Structures are given as C-alpha cells and as structure tokens.
Simulated assay, not measured.
Amino acid sequence: MSGLATMDDSRALVIERLVGDSGEASHVIGAGRSMGERIVSPLQKRLSNEIGAQVSIELRTVEVSRTIDARSQAGGNFAMTVVPSSTSSDALTMVMDAQAVAVMICGLFGGDPDAAITPIERDLSPLEADIATLVFEEIAQALNGSGKRSLDLRFPVPRAMSGQEARRRVLRDGAAVRLVFGLSTPTESGAVTVMIPQRVLLTQRSGAAEDEEAVAKTEWQERFSEEVMRSAVTLEATMPLARMTLGDLARLHTGQVLEIEENAQARAQLSARNKTLFVCEFGKLGQNYTVRIKQPFDAGQDFIDGLMPG
C-alpha cells in the first residue's frame, strides 16, 4: 500500500480484492489473444536466430483466470518471476515448468532434438534459473510493445526464482488473463504461463480507446468549426454620442437635438451578437456610409478609459 499515491488507488485495490477488477470475458480473451499471437513469430525468430535455441513456440491457451492460479499447472518444480511496470508491481507473472526448462537446456546446448529429454524432477539449479530468466526476458520484451499501447514494463526482469522461494511467493489476487505458450522439440514440450492482471490489460486497452476517441473528437471539432465559420451573423456599428449625467438623461425630451462629440466618428465600435469586436472609424464612400477597422477591441483598455475619461 505504501506505493499507492492516491485514495482512488487504495479504493481500486480494495474493490479488486473484494469483487475483482474485471472486464467482459470475451473482450479480455480477445485482447489477450491479440497480444499473444502478435509475439509468437518475433519470439520464435529471436529464440532460433539470436539465442540459438532450436525450439518451437506456439500459443496454446488464452483464458480468463486469477493471478494466484499462475502456478496451478506448473507441477512441483518450476521457475517464476513477477515483472513490475510503471503502474503495477505485478504487471506480468510468468511461470515456466520444468519440462520447458529442459527443452531450453537441450536447445541451447546442442542436444539431439530427436532424442528423448530427461525430465527435471528436482529444484532447478542456478544455471537453469538463469536460462528461465532469459526466456522470461524475451517474452516480456515482446509483450511490452511500444507507443501508446505499451505495458511500460521495467527491465531487466527480476531473476527467476525456483524451489521453496517460488512456491512460497505470495501473489496478489485479482482477475487476470492467462496466456500459455508451448516450447517444444520433436520429442518433448513444456509450457510457459503468462498472467496479465485485467486491471493492467484493461488500462492499456482503454488508453488506446481514449486515443481513438480523442482523434474522433478532434475530427468532429474541425467539422463543427468549419460549419460554424460558414454561419451568418449580423454586424452592428455604433458611434459614441456624448457623456451626460443621469439627471441630464432624465430631462431629455422629444425633439431635443444632441451634439455629437468631435472625435466620435473615429471611435465607432463594430460588434456582433452583443460582443464588441473592433474599434472603427465611420466614413463615406460615394453615396454609402462605411466603417474602417482600426484595431481589435481591448475590453481592459476600454474599462480604464471609462474610469478615466480623456
């Protein structure tokens, strides 16, 4: 809780622990499948060409699950790591079963791909944990993505834990999507389980939706502004007449002639819908009266001029 910055974060955590922060199952599975399928090809190329492990990778399963079930299908010996991001301390929980570790050992160290692989029935050695960490790093790099839809994971990933440390590690409960990747040779196969909390997945997807909504909103504003610019308004030009007291105004009568101030013609104001736009000057061109725009109207200066008449 110490890492939560606001009451909203605390409230969201409490709600998640009580009812689970989850979305519609079909939407969550679709988003998870899209992420999983996207990384299979580049991950296969990375494992084969750059790391040198002659193994095949496939996306086996995408399903709605709980984060605490990450180890449920890994058997007694497995490697595990929890990868944080900028918004979550457990953005990815990855578990690699012993069979997958054995497959990677065989692939990395030149084992005969057609020969049977001896299963690992003990706690993983430090070297085997390092290999699992290498696989976790590659998967996390591929899943992280880039741009607005990035998970913003923190790298390098924490070193894989195994044995009692991995079995006793307390996982934060919550709704998640489970991605199961298969690592295999012609004779053996294992699995790497990736758990992505739905609160992380939904935040990523909602961020992308907000971007799309912002683009649509901008387009709508541009179209609306264009239509507004085409609308017609009535312009009014007014010329100041004279200054007088309320008493003088009360004594005005029908037929009385008022004198226009000497420079009033140069202090006309052009307005539309009761909003003054420009300071203008009255004139005449042939038989028609004209208004020549002098400068934009300055409401602040006009207020000061009203307080301190020239």
Rank of each mutant, 00 (worst) to 15 (best):
V192W: 01
V215W: 08
M244W: 10
A242Q: 13
A250M: 02
P197M: 00
L235P: 04
R223G: 13
E222R: 15
A214L: 12
V200E: 01
Q256Y: 01
T238F: 06
A208R: 08
V233Q: 12
V194I: 13
L258D: 02
A208G: 11
F224E: 07
L235G: 06
M239D: 02
E213W: 14
T193R: 02
E259F: 01
F224L: 07
A242S: 09
F224H: 15
V233E: 04
T185D: 06
T203K: 09
W220D: 12
A216N: 05
L252S: 04
H253D: 08
E212W: 15
E219I: 07
E188T: 09
M195I: 05
V233S: 01
M195W: 01
T185P: 09
P240W: 10
S206W: 04
S231N: 12
E226A: 15
V257A: 14
Q204K: 05
G207Q: 11
R199K: 08
L235M: 10
E188P: 01
S225W: 04
P240F: 08
E213I: 14
I196C: 02
T193P: 03
V257D: 04
M244N: 08
S225H: 10
S225T: 13
S206V: 09
E188A: 14
L235W: 05
A237I: 07
P197V: 03
R230P: 01
R251V: 05
A214S: 15
E213Y: 15
A191H: 12
H253I: 07
T218V: 14
P197D: 01
L241P: 13
T218Y: 05
T193K: 02
E236L: 02
H253Y: 10
A191L: 11
S231D: 07
A242D: 07
T254A: 11
R223K: 15
D248V: 03
E259T: 09
T238V: 14
S206P: 00
A216R: 09
T234V: 11
E222I: 11
E213N: 13
K217I: 02
G190P: 00
P240V: 09
A191D: 09
A208V: 14
D248A: 12
P186G: 09
T218K: 07
L241R: 14
R199E: 00
T203I: 00
L241S: 09
E219R: 15
Q204N: 01
R205L: 08
H253L: 10
R243N: 12
M195R: 04
S206F: 08
H253Q: 14
W220I: 06
K217L: 06
L249F: 05
W220A: 10
P197I: 00
Q221K: 14
D248Y: 06
E212T: 07
E212Y: 15
S231C: 11
A208Y: 13
T234I: 07
T218I: 08
L246Y: 06
M195G: 03
E227S: 06
T203D: 05
M229S: 13
A237F: 05
R205I: 04
E236N: 06
D211Y: 06
E212N: 12
T193Q: 02
E210L: 09
V228P: 01
L202R: 02
R223C: 11
T254V: 11
S231F: 08
P186C: 12
T203P: 03
A209R: 15
Q221M: 13
A214D: 14
E222S: 11
M195P: 01
H253K: 12
W220N: 11
E212D: 14
